[in-house]
Design a protein around this nucleic acid. Structure first.
Lengths: 203, 203
DNA sequence: CCAGTATTGGAGTACATGCTCTAATACTGC
DNA sequence: GCAGTATTAGAGCATGTACTCCAATACTGG
């Protein structure tokens, strides 16, 4: 079945990710990825088809890694507030465990890496289906924490569990400090916001 | 003293900013900026010297606008908790008043727009001095709110006054909704976090 | 050992991009 | 009106970029 592969896909994806993280999407040129990964451009195109498809794969791999851990952390926690806080905590823990991937999620935008129009169909559907399990998790958390599908509850939950940890980690990664240093005080803030929203929601 | 200027600098900077916000730093090519602003490339180079310098100017202008307003809002408020909340509020108000600039701050990184090495010295020192007044403001808030330079107090303050408003505005700008809609509930959360930290800090 | 084949490897190509150059232009002070 | 000059304007150039092409390579099944 032909000549065996000499370079693992992850080698290429790691190189591309590191370049994007270090200097923005435009710095990950085919030549730069080739040099950093020691994989010739010809091989890059044989594997991925185009620069866009390669960068899309970088993005997909990272999002998948994050979400697998997120769903696992949420599943392991007790229902209600506990689960919500555990969800928030995962963003911090991911940043500590996988700093490079975390940087990609926090510092690059999808639009910087890929124009959806110019992608192979398989990748496009992959992208679209990624957010679904997480959306379902949020639905579940809303009903667990607020008892019903409350609109303003959902807003508070998103802020507390998604946006606030995101902002926190982003600031630390940009500043070069360790986000887990203030883990306790961040999670306290998360809990406070949710409890306050609970009080407002059930008057 | 020579031919009068036909195009205002801000016209060019606006065009470049909008391109960056819409599609990432790499989309703001000299040709694209020229077309969108209706200013010929020759004029761009006559004014700004290089593409890098132009993008740096875009960044500087936006950061300056944000920080001038921030410092003014903080100065106008009463000391202590009030001032801290007013500081947080400014991030929201800026997003409402200057959505395009706000998008730039939230969605672009400095590294995406410029490599510090390749900049005129004046711009480089400008960049470096930008954050200083804001850092001093944070110091001042820490002592006002917590009485002394408390480490955990500083953590809570940064989370409440920087991270939380950032997260809130980001969510709304990405989703296309108006961040000021939940202004009251966001500021309540800011106050809650700070009060809780005060209780923990002075036991 | 011999097809058959998937992969390697890098020189070569067409094109986009940042930037330069110079003539034309339209104002000011004298 | 006449220098003097800052700005306009866009054609042209050198370089960097994504991508192609094809011979060479190294494995597998028969």
């Amino acid at each position: 079945m032909g000549r065996p592969r000499l370079h693992a896909d992850d080698t290429v994806l790691d190189a591309a990710r590191d370049l994007v993280v270090a200097g923005g999407g435009s710095r990950a040129t085919t030549a730069a990825v080739s040099e950093r990964s020691a994989v010739p451009v010809g091989s890059l195109y044989h594997r991925f088809g185009s620069r866009e498809a390669l960068l899309a794969e970088v993005w997909l791999r990272t999002v998948r890694r994050f979400q697998v851990g997120l769903l696992r952390a949420a599943a392991a926690a007790a229902p209600g507030l506990r689960r919500a806080v555990a969800t928030a905590a995962w963003t911090l823990d991911f940043a500590t465990a996988q700093p490079a991937d975390s940087r990609l999620l926090l510092l690059a935008r999808r639009e910087d890496l890929l124009r959806e129009a110019a992608l192979p169909p398989a990748v496009r559907t992959g992208l679209r289906e990624l957010n679904e399990p997480v959306a379902r998790l949020l639905d579940r958390l809303v009903t667990e924490v607020f008892g019903r599908d409350d609109g303003s509850g959902r807003a508070a939950l998103t802020i507390a569990v998604v946006d606030l940890p995101y902002a926190h980690v982003r600031r630390h990664l940009l500043g070069g400090t360790d986000p887990s240093g203030q883990r306790a005080s961040l999670l306290r803030a998360v809990r406070l916001i949710l409890e306050e929203a609970q009080r407002n929601a059930i008057p």
